Simulated scan of single mutants.
Amino acid sequence: MSELLFKQFALTRRNFLQEIEGLDPEQASFQPEGFNNNIHWNTGHVLTVTEQFMMGYPKKSNHLPENYIELFGKGTRPSDWTGNVPSVEELANQLKAQLERINEVPASMLDQKLKQPILGLETFGELANMALFHESYHLGQIHAMKKLVK
């Protein structure tokens, strides 16, 4: 089962990266009517939340700058951004590196109980599945936004 989970991470991330590949900054920053955010934000949000779920960011992982929570965490929006915001290209490179780190997670870790349930999830494997669901959801949002940008 664990092999299937890691294959799904690779498949989902590959499709996610294909969706954002080649977007210019104007396309990535366009926020269509009816959407809460833009492609740029969704990209950083997936990176940040996956790092939280899979690597314990920001306390247990220093692979992302601490300000990513203020930029891309739950409830944030690009209209509130100030200061230095990483480009979509930089975020894409970080997504690639993150997938490499995810692939290094030992399969045995998936059965480990969490110290406290998160969103009703009790094991690390359940949390990993939530990370995949979350990424797929935002992949769909980006796909829809791209149709409206062009």
Rank of each mutant, 00 (worst) to 15 (best):
M1E: 09
L5Y: 08
L5K: 09
F6D: 02
K7A: 14
A10H: 09
R13D: 02
R14A: 15
N15F: 09
F16R: 05
L17C: 15
I20H: 10
E21C: 08
L23F: 03
S29A: 15
F30H: 09
P32H: 13
G34T: 04
N36V: 12
N38P: 04
H40L: 10
H40S: 06
T43K: 01
H45R: 05
V46R: 05
T48C: 12
V49S: 00
E51W: 02
E51L: 02
M55L: 14
G56H: 03
Y57R: 06
Y57Q: 07
Y57K: 08
Y57P: 04
P58K: 08
K59W: 01
N62V: 01
L64A: 06
G73W: 04
T76H: 01
W81F: 01
V85D: 04
E89S: 09
E89L: 01
L91E: 10
N93H: 07
L95A: 03
Q98P: 13
N103Y: 00
N103Q: 15
V105L: 15
V105F: 14
A107G: 08
S108A: 14
M109Q: 15
M109F: 13
L110G: 04
L114P: 07
Q116L: 11
I118L: 12
I118F: 11
L119K: 01
L119Y: 11
L119M: 13
G120T: 09
L121V: 02
G125E: 02
N129S: 13
L132P: 14
L132H: 11
S136R: 13
L139W: 06
L139I: 02
M145A: 08
K147G: 12
L148P: 03
L148I: 09
